[in-house]
Design a protein around this nucleic acid. Sequence first.
DNA 1: CAAATTTAAGTTGTGCACAATTAAGTTGTG
DNA 2: CACAACTTAATTGTGCACAACTTAAATTTG
Lengths: 149, 149
Amino acid sequence: MPERSILKRQVCFSLYAASRAATAVYRPLLQDLGLTYPQYLVMLLLWEHDGVSVRELGEELELDSGTLSPLLKRLEAAGMLERRRTPDDERRVAVHLTPHGAGLREKALAVPSHIAAAAGLTPDGLEQLNATLAKVTAALHAHAKDPAP
Amino acid sequence: MPERSILKRQVCFSLYAASRAATAVYRPLLQDLGLTYPQYLVMLLLWEHDGVSVRELGEELELDSGTLSPLLKRLEAAGMLERRRTPDDERRVAVHLTPHGAGLREKALAVPSHIAAAAGLTPDGLEQLNATLAKVTAALHAHAKDPAP
DNA sequence: CAAATTTAAGTTGTGCACAATTAAGTTGTG
DNA sequence: CACAACTTAATTGTGCACAACTTAAATTTG
């Protein structure tokens, strides 16, 4: 029978612990860029597609405006982006990179390989873990919406 | 080549998203017990071994006193536990369940099976994911301590 | 077209995480 | 024994997450 502690037997704790451990590896790397991990995720999206709306960011990150609004405000205060209401739909706020924010991309390119190495998995193992996690997340989301039987 | 977004290709985002999705499934179940997910983790440890110290809780959960002290204070205020400095070493604080806290265990027994079902994995798949995550977390921790080459 | 509904973003309040610091107790060493 | 080094908790301050609510704009509908 498993000798592991009550926590180590629970896959949800493993997720929780792994997620925090990954963020901890990111932290010093991102600190050099002046970013936190959630801020880095926002910047990744903006580097790919400048000018997305707060709603679109929230959809990709699975975060609501209660989290994103203050986060974007901080990034704006740091001079990395600007928020502008879109003229065609005054409800929406489009997020645009400043030159400083756009320039940070170069320095951020080295980050992912660092993390991949730290995880101690082969590229194949990483890919497989990623696929499993995507599947689990989708199943959990489906369940959260309709916590049926 | 992969059509997935910049985020979905990153295993760390998958971890972050999966962890939050799992917590979201826990939330309504634990709300019935008057617990948050981190509080539930603490209670799991106490149900297994009453009277552990704050340091030991922190070691198991990989959390420091900056997180645990206020969390325990809230559980104490809710009447679930008591904190007592140990006589043999006045630095340590032992955490003891109250009858109410101990009694909650029965109601919490149904929780894990709910989550396992929601994750949409076979028991085998869960076990394997758990093992992979444990391995990754250990590798990440090792790297965090010594961010060498 | 006016009222009701829906959508987008922001605000407020609670509870983690975590860095940095503080305070008090214990241990080790000269 | 004295006192430096270490250990344990708690505190302070920042930044997420997330629920609940507010405000304003757009859309739907009677």
